[in-house]
């Protein structure tokens, strides 16, 4: 699904240290516009640190990081305006209604009232939840909540969206539907940067990057990587990399 070769994320020799601990050890990779980029790694491998840097929450210690054309070192505010973010923890407010949540995030990202009205109509229609508009988010089923969170995270039509373990704790059917949503926005040209613990999901990505001990251990299309390591699934690939075994 890689539509063109414009890099939307450019990372060169990224190093992030906390005191003496090196969380990101010399990372170099690019993410191209329109692709679904899977970012894999065991807990503590440095994924979260990288996402925080890419989304402008934290500054790199060394290296060049450019996101949607802005320098993460100096222009984090501009980056923030142009990206979307959704985490495992839903990011919606349970004591606000569906429509109030939409209005809130639309407002935060500077949409006009008219834009918010149009997009929220579109959004609830797309998700088929017109009847839930005025319901508190806390009262709607988990699966819907998650799709809603995703739709709200892209309400301002960002060029790039970060999904940090978006499918944690939901059933397989919902996960499947969620990935259909991801595909749809990718098709519309939004770049998706996703971290996950489910290795079957990694197979859905255009390219994946496997992180261990703060370093990139593997990077490429899932099928190529499987071939390179002589494995049948990403699950197996991941296991071998994390165990520290080299490619065959």
């Amino acid at each position: 699904m890689q539509t063109n070769n414009t890099a939307i994320i450019e990372v060169e020799n990224l190093v992030k240290r906390f005191g003496t601990f090196t969380a990101n050890d010399n990372l170099t990779f690019k993410v191209y516009a329109g692709e679904i980029f899977g970012f894999l790694g065991a807990n503590g491998a440095g994924k979260t640190t990288t996402i925080r840097i890419l989304s402008g929450l934290s500054k790199p210690t060394e290296g060049i990081v450019k996101v949607v054309g802005f320098d993460a070192m100096k222009q984090s505010e501009s980056i923030k305006k142009n990206i979307g973010y959704m985490s495992q923890r839903f990011s919606l407010y349970d004591d606000l209604t569906v429509i109030e949540n939409i209005r809130l995030f639309g407002g935060i990202y500077g949409l006009s009232n008219k834009e918010i009205r149009n997009r929220s109509d579109e959004l609830v229609k797309d998700l088929g939840i017109e009847n839930l508009r005025k319901r508190l988010v806390g009262d709607i089923p988990l699966g819907w909540k998650q799709k809603l969170a995703f739709s709200i995270a892209i309400i301002h039509r960002p060029k790039l969206i970060f999904l940090d373990e978006p499918t944690g704790g939901v059933d397989p059917l919902t996960r499947r539907q969620f990935w259909e949503l991801i595909y749809r926005v990718a098709k519309q040209g939004t770049t998706v940067f996703v971290t996950t613990h489910y290795m079957d999901e990694a197979e859905y990505c255009d390219r994946i990057c496997v992180l261990a001990d703060g370093q990139i251990k593997a990077l490429g299309e899932p099928s190529n990587l499987k071939h390179e390591y002589q494995v049948t699934s990403i699950d197996e690939l991941f296991y071998r990399i994390v165990k520290g075994e080299d490619r065959v």
Binding site: S55, G56, L57, E77, K80, K81, I83, Y85, M86, S87, Q88, R89, F90, S91, L92, Y93, D94, F105, I108, Y109, G110, F162
Partner: peptide, 14 residues
């Protein structure tokens, strides 16, 4: 606790 702080910090809100 709910993780919404993360989302707010990533947003253009200072």
């Amino acid at each position: 606790e709910l993780g919404t702080m993360e989302v707010l910090l990533v947003s253009p809100l200072r």
